[in-house]
Design a protein around this nucleic acid. Structure first.
Length: 595
RNA sequence: GAUCCUGUAGCUCAGCUGGUAGAGCAUAUCACUUUUAAUGAUAGGGUCCUGGGUUCGAGCCCCAGCGGGAUCACCA
């Protein structure tokens, strides 16, 4: 070992000890041994004139994936990424470089990166001061090792960014078996940045999510529909029935709601003369969270003038089939144990026929009383607040919905539960509405949009009555929206599709948390850990302070604490260096060491 | 909101009937110029989620709380 590196080792040991002591003294942040070592390495890099967080641009010429795809030896390349899985073998080392596209093996040879007499860059910087997880840049030539692994022979090594927290070390053997997997859901969701680094498939889920949205966008733009943005802060939360989040605008001194839907605003744009508008919208609903619900979620809504819900079914099929083809190159998708085929055309069935099929009851033309009887005989629990529409929805939800694994359009919903939807052209009890069911769950929802302002006002008033009956999710009346309809809205069809659920299906994830970068969680507590003595510790200190030194038994008795409280207190004080217990021949003495 | 499971080293997890907190990886030191879960040797590393209780003694038993997960309920 050279004198220089010996010097560094000694300095580091001293600094680590000092650092740990001062940490205990001010107790501000608890750092593990590994973190302290890394912070010292960072300081040493600076002392050697190497900036651990350089500002300058680093020009990489390649990405790992592109290089591996068409790998040739003897190429001059520059790569940047994270240093992963370092394997040092004396004067030569292998490691992996992880960039946004994937991993590439690098080969670092002492005499290649340190051609002169000075071997510091290899012996000290690379071997001692660089850690798993640091950002580095490498310049060198490609070659294939004798075990056949495509690699880069590194000629130049640059430090691009130090990491002071160690990543979880996840290892995979040649059979693909994963060791020490980073799998705790809490840690994965709270620290998604770590999850994305060490769990490769997580990144691919989010890339798929982006591709799905891009395919849809292309599909709409090709037909010259316009992507728009509408308010998220709304004075009246309309367009759906759900409990909203409420906030307050100071300057106007009015309450505002985070939108639960954007439907009413997109329709205003049809009134304004656009013939096709769409929005990828974050909506917010103040309701329970579970595997398929997050308080904020993404919906794509599209409205096209002069179309009806039949046209929209064709359009929806085509869109989903295309999205699936562009993502997977085929229409079949594995979802859990099932295989779902998004090939057109999807099955279509009316809600009444579906209920007939799965329950044997023909509910067409039934009144509320008769529907209650049906629910009773099917053992479905109902509440007095439920109207006709809600009762039918209960029956469908309980007995039918879950059966539709393959994509199926359920059509012609009862009028009462669809206040924004046009009455059915042949049956005034029904509406021109469909929902797309996949894997037993609703994926999309569409109407021939109601554009009769007088009918719309009447439907809203119906909702108000339901509200008075105790349905706290019935809709409010948006007077401005009705005024817009009164100026005339072209006949149109609109459709909304849950992006999170679509992505779950297409990426075979059964939890919405897996397709959201940052799913909602209870806020983490970052407790400031100060040396505030608790009551018991304070009592011991105060008692001991007067005497300076006491017999252990006397001190304990004087404090009057239970065994456990005493034990905890005296241990904690010892750790903080405030007391010291000395064993003499015939007794235990406690010395006070504080100021 | 209900029930069940869970919380131990940086990570993944053991921990017996209640009796001195363990392993692998990671870290540190040494060796090693084609390795790939690199290898060999040595060493250090802990608020056993928190607070009470029982006990001579609690990671383990009891009570209360906190975090997370699963199932159910709620939910267009």
């Amino acid at each position: 070992m050279s004198l220089v590196s010996l010097f560094f080792v000694v300095v580091r040991e001293i600094l680590v000890i000092l650092c740990r002591k001062s940490t205990i003294a001010n107790m501000s942040i608890h750092r593990s041994e590994q973190e302290l070592v890394r912070i010292q390495a960072l300081e040493q890099l600076r002392n050697m004139g190497i900036e651990p967080f350089p500002a300058a641009e680093f020009k990489a010429t390649h990405k790992a994936k592109d290089l591996l795809k068409d790998f040739k030896d003897e190429q001059e390349v520059v790569l940047a990424g994270r240093l992963m899985s370092v394997r040092v073998m004396g004067k030569a080392s292998f490691a992996e470089l992880l960039d946004s596209s994937g991993r590439m093996q690098i080969y670092i040879n002492r005499d290649e990166i340190c051609p002169g007499e000075d071997k510091e860059l290899y012996n000290t910087v690379f071997k001692k001061l660089l850690d798993f997880g640091d950002f580095i840049g490498v310049e060198g030539t490609t070659f294939t090792t004798k075990t056949g692994e495509p690699s880069i022979l590194v000629k130049k090594l640059s430090v691009l960014g130090k990491s002071i927290r160690p990543l979880p070390v996840v290892k995979t053997d040649d059979q693909g078996k994963v060791y020490d997997k980073f799998s705790d859901p809490e840690l994965r969701y709270r620290m998604r940045y770590v999850d994305l680094i060490v769990n490769e498939h997580v990144k691919s889920t989010f890339i798929a999510r982006s591709k799905v949205m891009q395919s849809m966008r292309n599909f709409f733009n090709e037909q010259e529909y316009l992507e728009v943005e509408t308010p998220i802060l709304q004075p009246i939360p309309g367009g759906a029935s759900a409990r909203p989040f409420i906030t307050h605008h100071n300057a106007l001194d009015v309450p505002l709601y985070l939108r639960i839907a954007n439907e009413l605003y997109l329709k205003r744009l049809l009134v304004g003369g656009f013939e096709g508008v769409y929005e990828f919208a974050k909506d917010f609903r103040n309701e329970g969270m579970d595997r398929t619900h997050n308080p904020e979620f993404t919906v794509m809504e599209i409205y096209v003038a002069y179309k009806d819900y039949n046209w929209m079914m064709d359009f929806t099929e085509e869109m989903i089939e295309r999205v699936c083809m562009e993502l997977h190159g085929q229409t079949k998708v594995k979802v859990g144990e099932k295989e779902i085929n998004f090939q057109r055309p999807f099955k279509r069935i009316t809600m009444i026929d579906s209920i007939k099929e799965f329950t044997g009851f023909d509910i067409s033309g039934m009144n509320e009383e008769q529907l209650r009887e049906v629910c009773k005989s099917l053992n479905i629990e109902v509440e007095p607040s439920m109207g006709k529409g809600k009762l039918i929805d209960e029956i469908f939800g309980e007995k039918c919905e879950g059966n539709y694994i393959q994509p199926t359009f359920i059509t012609d919903y009862p009028k009462e539960m669809s206040p924004l939807c046009k009455e059915h052209r042949t049956n005034p009890e029904l509406t021109e509405r469909f929902e797309l069911m996949v894997n037993g769950k609703e994926l999309a929802n569409a109407y021939s949009e109601l554009n009769d302002p007088l009918d719309q006002r009447a439907r809203f008033e119906e909702q108000l009555k339901l509200n008075e009956r105790g349905d706290d999710e019935a809709m409010f009346i948006d007077q401005d929206f009705i005024r817009a309809l009164e100026y005339g809205m072209p006949p149109a069809s609109g459709m909304g599709i849950g992006i999170d659920r679509l992505v779950m299906l297409l990426t075979n994830n059964d939890s919405i948390q897996e397709v959201l970068f940052f799913p909602q969680m209870r806020p983490e507590k970052f407790g400031e850990k100060k040396v505030e003595l608790n009551e018991n510790e304070q009592l011991i200190v105060n008692t001991l302070k007067k005497e300076g030194t006491m017999m252990l038994n006397e001190l304990k008795d004087a404090c009057g604490l239970s065994n456990k409280q005493w034990d905890k207190g005296i241990k904690a004080l010892g750790k903080l260096g405030l007391t010291q217990v000395e064993k003499t021949e015939d007794a235990l003495l406690v010395h006070y060491k504080g100021e």
